[in-house]
Simulated assay, not measured.
Amino acid sequence: MIFEELELPGLFRVAPEPHTDERGFFARTHCESELSERGLIGRFTQSSVSFNHRRGTVRGLHFSTAPHAETKLVRCTAGAIHDAVVDLRPGSPTYLRTALVTLSAANRHALYIPAGLAHGFQTLSDDAEILYMIDRPFVAAAADGVRWDDPAFGLTWPEPITVIAPRDLAFPDWAGR
Rank of each mutant, 00 (worst) to 15 (best):
A15Q: 14
A99N: 04
V74G: 02
F171V: 11
H68G: 03
D21Y: 15
A27C: 10
K72Y: 00
I164N: 07
A106Y: 09
P90I: 11
E32G: 03
A175P: 15
G79E: 05
T162L: 07
L11V: 03
P114K: 01
R23E: 07
N107W: 03
E32Q: 10
I164Y: 01
T29V: 09
D126W: 02
T20R: 12
L100K: 08
F138P: 12
F44M: 10
V14M: 06
E22P: 15
G42P: 12
S125P: 10
V49Y: 07
A27N: 11
T20D: 15
Y112P: 01
L117Q: 03
D173Y: 15
A115Y: 10
P18L: 06
I161W: 08
H62M: 03
L124G: 13
R28D: 09
F12R: 05
E129P: 07
L155I: 15
D173I: 15
A143R: 03
S104F: 01
L35K: 06
L40M: 07
E34Q: 15
G120R: 01
D149R: 12
R54L: 15
T123D: 00
C76N: 04
A170F: 02
P9G: 12
E17D: 10
A128L: 07
G154L: 12
R167M: 06
S64E: 04
Q122K: 01
E5S: 15
A141Q: 14
P9Q: 04
T123F: 01
G120K: 00
F12I: 09
S104V: 06
C76Y: 02
K72A: 01
D144T: 11
D83Y: 01
E70C: 01
T123Y: 07
C31E: 11
D168T: 00
A15G: 15
A118Y: 00
D126G: 05
E70S: 03
P93D: 09
D173V: 14
E159V: 06
T65V: 04
A15L: 14
F12G: 06
A27W: 14
W157D: 06
T162W: 05
F25L: 10
T162V: 08
V139E: 11
D127G: 11
